[in-house]
Design a protein around this nucleic acid. Structure first.
Lengths: 231, 231
DNA sequence: CAGTACCGTGTGGTCCGACCACACCGGTAG
DNA sequence: CTACCGGTGTGGTCGGACCACACGGTACTG
């Protein structure tokens, strides 16, 4: 058992037992080291891992906002882990696209069929689409808004795990999407098509037609990757 | 920019550029520190993060197996991240179950409908189910085999991301399942029911009936969590 | 008395140097 | 030729030190 794992165990146990809650501060690195009878570097390595997992956020200085604060940010670690593994080329892009289709189809079907879908959230999504109608929108900005649209869509289903995974997938592949964008021969026309498809998906959700929404979102995603030749 | 992030960037760039490949060794901690003009502790923190992400595996000693080796193990980091966030109680168990149903339903449907489903994999799954028929099987062992069965099912679909997420979900909640198992009033009868349902799911996959397989696996998962009262 | 500038204090961030346990590998003794 | 055994390089751990920073109370100023 490595020393820093001891620290991790301790923190996880404290979390599970409710001794540490969201917003609480971890004991200082020196205090934790003394308490567990390990060195400060070992504690630091553990804190780094927790930070990489999105469990704590660290800040220097003094006062309530300084130190290692317990947060719940599962998205960023998933994103960086996916990005790293994409970089190793042992995670085929096709599998990521397939997973996106799977999760987003389910999410829009779920959102369309539940009666209590958040009206404010729908309104926010409409505003996103309006922003994408802006002429002369830089490509980068378009793709960022596109990503926000898809994540917002997935969030409608009300499952934090699904929307977190969706957000991570989208962020992790953002760079690859941007690299592939020049492959589209006629960008203005392609963007127009994407806008139309977005509206169509949203319309199906609002109409409560889950099957149609799922079908449209799947075709939308697969169509884009095929056209852009992302691989 | 924190110093250890510099090291992370360097490694990710090397991976993306193909200068580091699976099985390669990272330069030694001292060498890396000298090369990037940072201290060894900073390098160590970065290596820890990479290890936590499942990108490298470290070992002491000398020779080809020592040092930090590039691996592709996306499952373990997902597992521990999920476990940690589960412990923070900001990741409802219900959402995890829902996600499992979503992904496993898709996986068995996919497996049932593709012609080239691996016969060896199916045979391995049958052996798993045979092992679960063993009388006097300890509960812990039963649940481990159960988990292996579900992960193997998900792997049939041939999507590494889906099977990885499935494996992580299953592992992350294993402890909670074990804690909840005593809630089942009549364990032998419950185990018998689970065995029957497993066989039925596999039969539907082998028969090529995707809809039936998806329906059965969804009912199986939801039924268990409802009966055991996991929350 | 009110406002402001200032410095003490505790935090994480970074670094250095040292020693340990371990696994391999090559030289050496049998 | 074989078996032993130390050399060597690896990550693992430690203690201590200094830095930059942010807060918070205090002392000074008006």
């Amino acid at each position: 058992m490595k020393t820093y794992e001891l620290v991790l165990q301790r923190v996880e146990a404290d979390l599970a037992a409710g001794r540490l809650r969201l917003g609480d501060r971890l004991p200082g690195e020196r205090a934790l080291a003394a308490e567990l009878e390990v060195s400060r570097p070992s504690v630091r390595e553990a804190v780094r891992v927790l930070e990489a997992m999105g469990v704590v956020r660290t800040a220097v200085g003094s006062g309530p906002q300084a130190g290692a604060i317990i947060v719940a940010e599962p998205s960023s670690p998933l994103t960086s882990t996916l990005r790293l593994h994409l970089a190793t080329r042992h995670l085929p892009m096709g599998h990521i696209v397939q997973t996106r289709v799977l999760m987003e189809s389910w999410a829009v079907r779920e959102a369309a069929e539940r009666a209590d879908t958040d009206a404010d959230a729908l309104e926010a999504i409409r505003r996103l689409l309006d922003a994408m109608d802006e002429p002369d929108l830089p490509r980068e900005r378009f793709h960022v808004l596109d990503a926000e649209f898809h994540v917002a869509l997935a969030t409608l289903a009300g499952n934090v795990l699904v929307s977190t995974i969706m957000a991570s997938l989208r962020e992790a592949i953002h760079g690859y999407v941007m690299d592939a964008a020049p492959n589209l021969p006629d960008w203005p026309a392609a963007a127009e098509g994407l806008r139309r498809e977005h509206r169509a998906v949203l319309a199906a959700v609002e109409a409560g037609d889950g099957d149609l929404a799922a079908e449209r979102v799947a075709a939308h995603i697969e169509g884009f990757y095929q056209a852009a030749g992302v691989r």
